[in-house]
């Protein structure tokens, strides 16, 4: 212990006054999470607005917290929600169970389920935190149409899966944009 050690301590305090402030002013300024951050889910659409979900329940089976409930139903010619045979009739995610591990995203065979990096989910009601299909569905982009409607982009579901990106361009989605997720924000 030297004689000047107590003064050195004050020196640190004094020097800190001239350093850049590290505090994030969060609610006033927004700081986006990392682009691939596991936030809220989103159910995607094909470029013509038909749903990608086929109601296979693989996400529900993969979920370690049992947070997802899916009920499939058959498409008919009059009422078509997705290309192919089946669609997700009921889809619920309980955000009070979901741990954001992303296993459901890995399990999804059609990339219907993805995550966006929205995270401000807190609410005062348990019931409101069970998100239903309407809450999770991706917004309609230009060129999309609310289902039910017939397949606009091909004869069968094969066309939808094989030529997805070209069909998206044809529907007016610009180059470099995707119909899959919302815009990813990167940390500046």
């Amino acid at each position: 212990m030297g004689m000047f050690d107590p003064l050195k301590g004050f020196g640190v305090t004094f020097a800190t006054m001239f350093k850049k402030v590290v505090t994030e002013q969060y609610p006033e300024d927004f700081y986006p999470s990392a682009p691939r951050w596991h936030g809220r889910h989103q159910l995607n659409r094909h470029p013509d607005g038909l749903e990608k979900c086929v109601g296979c329940e693989l996400c529900a089976w993969a979920c370690p917290a049992d947070a997802i409930f899916v009920e499939g139903a058959d498409n008919t010619e009059e009422e078509r929600y997705s290309p192919g045979e089946r669609y997700g009739f009921d889809y619920q995610i309980n955000y009070l169970r979901c741990i954001g591990c992303g296993l459901c995203i890995e399990a999804c065979p059609t990339r219907s389920l993805t995550m966006v990096n929205f995270y401000e989910l807190a609410d005062d009601d348990r019931r409101k935190l069970i998100y239903t299909k309407e809450d999770l569905m991706a917004p309609l982009l230009p060129g999309m149409e609310e289902p039910p409607h017939p397949m606009r982009l091909g004869e069968n579901e094969q066309d939808y899966y094989v030529q997805g990106p070209e069909l998206a361009r044809g529907r007016g989605v610009p180059e470099g944009e995707t119909v899959e997720t919302s815009k990813e924000e990167a940390i500046q």
Binding site: E24, Y26, P27, Y31, S33, Y95, L96, C98, I99, G100, C101, Y119, E120, L121, A122, D123, D124, D125, R126, L129
Partner: peptide
């Protein structure tokens, strides 16, 4: 409980968001 905050774990911004709500 007055406010439920989902997340595993929620990031600090989410906690601040819940507190603001």
């Amino acid at each position: 409980v007055d406010m439920y905050l989902p997340g595993c774990p929620p990031r600090p911004e989410m906690l601040i968001d819940a507190i603001m709500k």
